[in-house]
């Protein structure tokens, strides 16, 4: 049984239909990369999975439990949605760290408020996670004292602290200087080795090709192509995919 199943997700903003029926599934420990040009609905899909937007139609199931069903209003209460968000973690494009807390406090805040263990456990876990993302010497630094790459790594540790079943990344390196993207991508790759189930919206084609188990290419609110990196990158079926990949190569030679 897949860990995550999304069935026929639809979302419109006013008259603009952003998601036109998205279905996919993801197994435990798999990494899914979503690629596509801006405006194709990638970010909206991720926001729907984290319930920052509510899909108009469709179903989201995690581990056999139906979290969201557009046809079933009982899954729509504020409290249910809040609880359901805990199945997912989300790392934002522009980090969104809490500026008044240092790195350690950013990671411990949510587990502390949600009473996920004793303060000692929460603290020890946060230190372990920050060590894992290579920031054990920056525990007491405030976000403004950290580089973009370091801030994003704190954000990853913060998302991991609640042990989400699926960790989502919304273009995690798009706001970073080129020389800082590597450190963040290495951390994400390290998570794959620990069998973290992940969905990564990205423009980093090499990263998608080498790290993901599954690629979704989105265009105009639909899944244009889905498959292994080999299938999508080497033998794309649709013309749109071929065009996009050619454009993404940045071939100036």
């Amino acid at each position: 049984m897949p860990l995550l199943e999304a069935v026929n997700l639809k979302k419109s903003f006013g008259k603009t239909e952003v998601l036109k029926g998205i279905s996919f599934s993801l197994d435990r420990g798999e990494v899914l990369a979503i690629i596509g040009s801006s405006g194709s609905g990638k970010t909206t899909l991720l926001r729907c999975l984290n319930f920052l937007e509510l899909p108009d139609e469709g179903c989201i199931t995690v581990g056999g439990q139906v979290l969201y069903d557009g046809a079933d209003v009982s899954t729509l209460s504020d409290e249910t949605i809040r609880q359901n968000r805990l199945h997912f973690g989300l790392v934002f494009q522009n980090f969104n760290l809490f500026p008044q807390y240092n790195a350690l406090e950013n990671v411990t805040l949510a587990p502390t408020l949600l009473k996920k263990g004793t303060q000692e456990e929460i603290d020890a876990n946060a230190r372990k996670l920050l060590d894992q993302v290579g920031l054990s010497d920056k525990l007491m630094n405030y976000p403004y004292q950290l580089s973009g790459g370091q801030q994003q790594r704190v954000a990853i540790a913060r998302a991991l602290a609640l042990r989400p079943q699926v960790l989502c990344f919304d273009e995690p390196t798009s706001a970073l200087d080129p020389e800082l993207t590597g450190e963040v991508l290495r951390v994400i790759r390290g998570l794959k080795d620990r069998d973290t189930t992940m969905i990564v919206v990205t423009h980093e084609m090499d990263f998608a090709r080498n790290v993901a188990d599954k690629i979704i290419y989105m265009a105009d609110g639909v899944i244009e192509e889905m498959g292994t990196p080999e299938e999508v990158f080497e033998h794309p079926q649709s013309n749109k995919t071929k065009m996009f990949l050619r454009g993404a190569q940045n071939d100036f030679s």
């Binding site: 984290n50 319930f51 920052l52 809040r82 609880q83 968000r85 805990l86 997912f88 973690g89 989300l90 934002f92 969104n96 760290l97 809490f98 805040l109 949510a110 408020l113 949600l114 913060r158 998302a159 609640l162």
Partner: peptide, 10 residues
């Protein structure tokens, strides 16, 4: 800032 709080289940 609100969204970061929301996705952390606060």
């Amino acid at each position: 800032q609100y969204e970061a709080g929301y996705v952390l289940g606060l």
